[in-house]
Nucleic acid binder design. Structure first.
Lengths: 332, 332
DNA sequence: GCCGTGGATGATAGCGATAACATCAACCAG
DNA sequence: CTGGTTGATGTTATCGCTATCATCCACGGC
């Protein structure tokens, strides 16, 4: 097995010093056309490409790698986010190093340590828990950090969020405008940012319309299989059932759909998150849609910005917060 | 901004030489308990972790990085594959460097070049085109390569595939067993491996049952929006329409579903790929299901294997081909 | 007392690239 | 014809780590 060629090999073949090769590869103007030609020829003949590991070590930075720590890549929302990140980074010749934390803070912590040890130029992370002190530590040590899809908690980090509040409010308003006065809420565990913002949007819409918030119409649904459908069925089974439901994510929307169909009622339905086949359910449905990849793209841009600052010696400005807008879609 | 601590810093603080620190970090037995304690204390106090870039350069290998080039990460199939890869690699402290080729061979080629320049220890790739010569070149130069979801084409590479043939045949047999004699096929562009294997499975089932293959019942569907539905509608509009349809992927299955519902007929339906909400369509449906993450896991294992061989000086064995099985699921 | 033996530790030399400085020829102004 | 200027190239040292060899001390057998 032959080793990959080094700059020295190229230099010998071209009859110049390694330094000249380096200059050619950097498009330095201080190289004669003739030397440049010879070097490029040698590069081609040997199939040479620069050893990025050595380069990074020498420069002490600029590995061209960015850490991307995600809670659950199997979830289309996060994989789209990853696509967005990747596309922005790729334009700048930077690659993402993947980490799937599985919502486990300890794994997240290990991954961050590992990424720092690998000297990545920055990190984009969907934080798994509320303790983000390790992320702040990393940032203070000089590695830019941007949060995706979840807000910073007590630490001054950049982040990109969905406009959960406005989206939830708009969907609820749509139901109210259609004449509904008793609107059930199928929410998420309250500890999550997304869950509480969407609930806040729901409340705000009711409030603005002068409708009372009735706790009997509010259900928080965990991850369990069928939990959403059961909760929706409960609401529909009340003595005075809601005439419409607003569900806080696509899982809940699907559960609500099943419950409505099983009960044979014509309860109106609106929900956060668009999903495939939403138009085939055979019942009117309003969904709050947004561009998940855009979250990734914006996070990527924020990070690139910080990376440039850091390279310049970095007067790191105040934390920034980007909000990705939502739109309402009515099916069918 | 302070630089991260180096091994030298740790050594000074612990009153030993860098070499001793290195030994401690490698769990070498040739270190006194006392020195070890002092070094570990210094490591903690400084928050030191080894510079992996320098380590890799010194060793001339073992970056602990593996390239993962995917055609379309936004597709749940491939993101699940990525999850599988990541999980296996993570067990070995290895991370994946992501690349999204978008089915563009030229981008794939560039990414592979870049990954090799970064000295990744191996590459898993879902190849975008039929020209895989660049992959073979990379392998011959010492970087193991494993293909995911698509077979090698003229080059001796390891790969992991879905059992497209058997799955398609089984689904078609299920339709035949239900008494259907005229079964339409909604296929994929014939140049794709998956498309041709699934068609082969369909044909084999017909053949085994003594049924004729009728070309009028066979449609190849491209990517266009609504193309599947139109093709299905054509089949349903024939003078003697098929009484059942077999569709070669979930996109086509959904299109077929729409067409069947629009036509108000009770054509039976079976398709490759499971998908969410398949049970809510309100019509009997058989799908060919498989574990996409398993493809990634197996690819990861094949690659790890090759990486070990390569580290040992590598008598690289013959190419291996793993087949991930499928199962039939009947909805509702 | 001397030498081997073995365990702990240190010194040295790179891995491949590049910043910073050194060199050297060619050329022109005075 | 000399000194300074410019442009092209080479030399040196170094990034942080570790394989390899060298060193050094303690101990025990003869």
């Amino acid at each position: 097995m032959h080793q990959p060629p080094t700059m020295r090999d190229v230099a010998e073949r071209a009859g110049v010093s390694p330094m000249t090769v380096s200059r050619v590869l950097h498009d330095s103007p201080a190289v004669s056309a003739e030397a440049k030609t010879r070097v490029l020829a040698a590069v081609n003949e040997l199939g040479y490409h620069r050893n990025e590991v050595a380069r990074s070590l020498r420069l002490g930075r600029d590995t061209g790698l960015v850490g991307l720590v995600i809670t659950n890549l199997a979830n289309p929302f996060y994989s789209q986010l990853a696509v967005g990140v990747e596309s922005v980074l790729a334009e700048h010749g930077i690659r993402a190093v993947l980490g799937n934390s599985g919502e486990d803070v300890e794994r997240e912590r290990q991954m961050i340590r590992d990424l720092v040890a690998r000297r990545v130029d920055g990190i984009i992370v969907v934080p798994a828990g509320n303790d983000q002190s390790h992320l702040e530590t990393v940032r203070l040590r000089g590695t830019p950090v941007v949060l995706g899809a979840r807000p910073p908690d007590g630490v001054p980090l950049d982040c990109v969020l969905v406009d959960d509040f406005t989206g939830a409010r708009a969907a609820t308003v749509r139901l109210i405008d259609a004449g509904h006065q008793r609107i059930g809420f199928l929410g998420l565990p309250p500890a999550t940012w997304t869950g509480s913002e969407r609930f806040r949007g729901y409340c705000a819409a009711l409030d603005a319309a002068g409708l009372p918030l009735d706790d009997r119409y509010v259900r928080r649904v965990g991850r369990g299989h069928g939990a959403a459908e059961r909760a929706a069925a409960e609401l529909l089974g009340l003595r005075k059932p809601p005439t419409a439901l607003f569900s806080a994510n696509n899982r809940n929307t699907i559960g609500a759909f099943r419950a409505i169909r099983a009960a044979g009622v014509d309860t109106a339905l609106a929900g956060f998150d668009d999903f495939e086949l939403a138009d085939t359910l055979g019942l009117p449905l309003t969904v709050v849609s947004y561009d998940a990849a855009e979250i990734g793209r914006q996070a990527g841009r924020l990070l690139l910005d910080r990376m440039l600052d850091a390279a310049d010696g970095g007067a790191d400005g105040p934390p920034r917060r980007m909000i990705v807008p939502t739109t309402l879609i009515d099916y069918p």
